[in-house]
């Protein structure tokens, strides 16, 4: 008889009488339930921070910072003025500089500025102002937008996006969205 068999034999000899008593059964059940509870508590204590580490970055609030575009002094009425902007954005532990282009249109008749994104709403190419055709033209799929950003030509499904903007001390700022 090897050791294991010997132990089982010894166990059979000495333990079984315990197994049959109600006291033993209730004690074992108590220990089982308590073990289960404690194991659940351990799983929670560990599981919550671990889940949080994975899910946390996804739940981070996206900021909408104000980004400087440029001075207003050089904008002629009725002609879209092209501005490039850049802003720093956190990418995990990185901070990267993101750049973009916006068009500022000062109406000939006066009134508030319009700031349009240069990203075509079709598939994301960069539109450019064509002064001959007086339209924003997309070189990718021949999409076209008028000076107010409305679709006039081609496949774009909706007008050019507009930036929320403000003017402070002669400088125009736009609000960009992270993400």
């Amino acid at each position: 008889m090897n050791q294991e068999e010997q132990r089982s034999h010894e166990f059979e000899t000495h333990y079984q009488p315990y197994e049959q008593s109600q006291e033993t059964i209730s004690r074992r059940r108590f220990l089982s339930y308590t073990t289960g509870l404690l194991t659940g508590a351990i799983a929670l204590l560990l599981g919550i921070p671990l889940a949080g580490v994975v899910v946390g970055p996804l739940l981070k609030k996206k900021k909408s910072p104000w980004v400087r575009l440029g001075g207003l002094s050089d904008i002629a009425p009725g002609v879209p003025a092209k501005f490039t902007y850049s802003f720093r954005k956190a990418d995990g532990w990185f901070e990267k500089t993101f750049r973009g282009t916006a068009y500022v249109i000062k109406p000939k008749s006066g009134g508030d500025f319009t700031v349009l994104s240069n990203v075509c709403t079709h598939l994301g190419c960069g539109v450019r102002w064509d002064s001959d055709q007086q339209a924003f033209l997309c070189p990718c799929h021949n999409g076209g937008f008028d000076i107010e950003g409305k679709v006039t030509l081609g496949p774009p499904p909706r007008p050019l996006d507009r930036f929320t903007h403000k003017v402070e001390e002669g400088v125009i700022f736009i609000q960009v969205r992270e993400g």
């Binding site: 050791q3 010997q6 132990r7 010894e10 166990f11 000495h14 333990y15 315990y18 074992r28 220990l31 089982s32 308590t34 073990t35 404690l38 194991t39 508590a41 351990i42």
Partner: peptide, 23 residues
Amino acid sequence: EENVEYNQRFYPEQIFKDVVVAM
């Protein structure tokens, strides 16, 4: 190691103790 009294099982007696200490 003959005639040793084996009066408990690993589960739940010893595991209970292990889980308490682990907790």
